[in-house]
Design a protein around this nucleic acid. Structure first.
Lengths: 246, 246
DNA sequence: CGCATACTTTGATCAGGATCAAAGCAAGAT
DNA sequence: ATCTTGCTTTGATCCTGATCAAAGTATGCG
């Protein structure tokens, strides 16, 4: 299922699959749109935007990873979204960013200036429809995550995060997750803790426990191999045959 | 407050404020739409739909309260949404309900058959736009809730829930929350626990603690009065002047 | 090379909330 | 009036994950 054949109308990373917008899709038709669309890169660790900042663009992640998070006055932080390639950032119709966005790895965004993008949405209903679908998907993901945060044990939380990253990594490479698959853990222990509502020590301990139990194999601290997917799924506490949105 | 002046173009409860759709808005123009739109009532405790069921309608809450929730195989339950009047239920473009929907109180829904509704969305872009805005709001709410679930203490969680209900109750009556305001707690201790990722005993203890501390005044078990809103806000752990989406 | 920095692991102890158990309370049914 | 049912409160104890502390590891740099 790796369609290595590049479809010019659908570059696979840009969520706005409409020829009037994505120049990776139809580069030659788009010179006149350079003023509404541009690429922007960030280094690992750099903030993209802070909660409350005016946000004059919307964007989609082309390469790299960013996090969406919220921080309380006393420093407690909760990550509320993990932005991987093809994910969308932004709020048509909103003035301010509701959450912090930070680049975790080096990051490339495909940005659209907000006003012209909104105009385009008005004149091209299919963009709004696609955005609605993406937003509904994100909402479902967020709600699935609420179950993880509210009801799962530390061990189940770690397993759930590994499964999400495994699934998304597989999807990114246009294949299905399978036994023996390997992937890079893109997050520090602290970032995982912020995602899971745990402390970094607990994350470290549970990862060690999963390693000792043979559920995962670690090469170094970041490279993960899953010898038996079913085994990992059973550690998540999820229904084994449950439909997944991620 | 009871806006007894009924605006025929905007009934205030139906999110689809478009004259072609909401018969409460333009009852006389809509006879021919009876086959796509209908009201349906549920008794307290009745399920509206189970996760995985085919969903052949979308709806908005007219009166009453429903919950969106997820349950694990072993019975652990997490509520992922609280549906109050004017909230929308459903997924244009989706076959199956992703979560359980249960009526908490007696409930009236304003339902639209899915297929004709989707057709209508296609022909009336403003509906899609409105739905996108509502979905983005819900997504923000879900993400705010992730902070509550992941990082707040039991006491902060209770205070946060009370604030949300207070805000939404005030909004429903078209006024601002203010000191001394009273409202009905529409949820059992168990339902609150499911919303907050706690046990019902912890909910009970923390409510007692807030009562003893004078943050809230209880008349019976469900009627709540907030003598000092700022005091309650400070118990939530939130930034006092933080912008709120709810 | 030694040192600094950032991240991770591991250990010891503590505490918040879960669990188990029982009793209180209100409303409706018999 | 008594019983039943469903919800809530309160108490005693336990356990998971937080907190505090220190050591281990990798990488880059002067």
């Amino acid at each position: 299922m790796n369609d290595t054949s590049f479809n010019p109308r659908d570059c696979g990373t840009c969520p706005i699959r409409h020829r009037a917008v994505c120049s990776r899709c139809e580069p030659d038709e788009l010179e006149h749109l350079d003023d509404i669309k541009y690429y922007r890169t960030y280094e690992a660790g750099q903030p993209v935007i802070w909660a409350g900042d005016p946000m004059e663009f919307v964007a989609s992640v082309v390469t790299g990873i960013a996090t969406l998070s919220q921080t309380m006055e006393d420093g407690r932080t909760q990550m509320v979204g993990l932005l991987l390639p093809s994910d969308f950032i932004g709020r048509p119709g909103r003035e301010q960013a509701p959450f912090d966005v930070v680049a975790v790895t080096d990051l490339t965004l495909c940005c659209f200036r907000k006003k012209p993008f909104e105009d385009l949405m008005g004149s091209t209903p299919s963009i709004g429809g696609r955005l609605l679908q993406m937003t509904l998907d994100e909402l479902d993901s967020a709600r699935e995550w609420m179950l993880v945060l509210g009801r799962k044990t530390a061990r189940e939380k770690i397993a759930s995060l590994l499964m999400i990253i495994a699934r998304r990594d597989a999807a990114l490479h246009k294949r299905l997750p399978k036994d023996g698959m390997e992937f890079d853990l893109p997050l520090t222990r602290e970032a995982m803790a912020d995602y899971l509502g745990l402390t970094l020590e607990t994350v470290s301990r549970q990862i060690s426990a999963l390693k000792k139990a043979g559920v995962i194999i670690l090469q170094g601290k970041r490279q993960v191999q899953i010898p038996d997917l079913q085994r990992l799924v059973s550690e998540t506490g999820d229904d084994v045959d449950g439909g997944h949105i991620f």
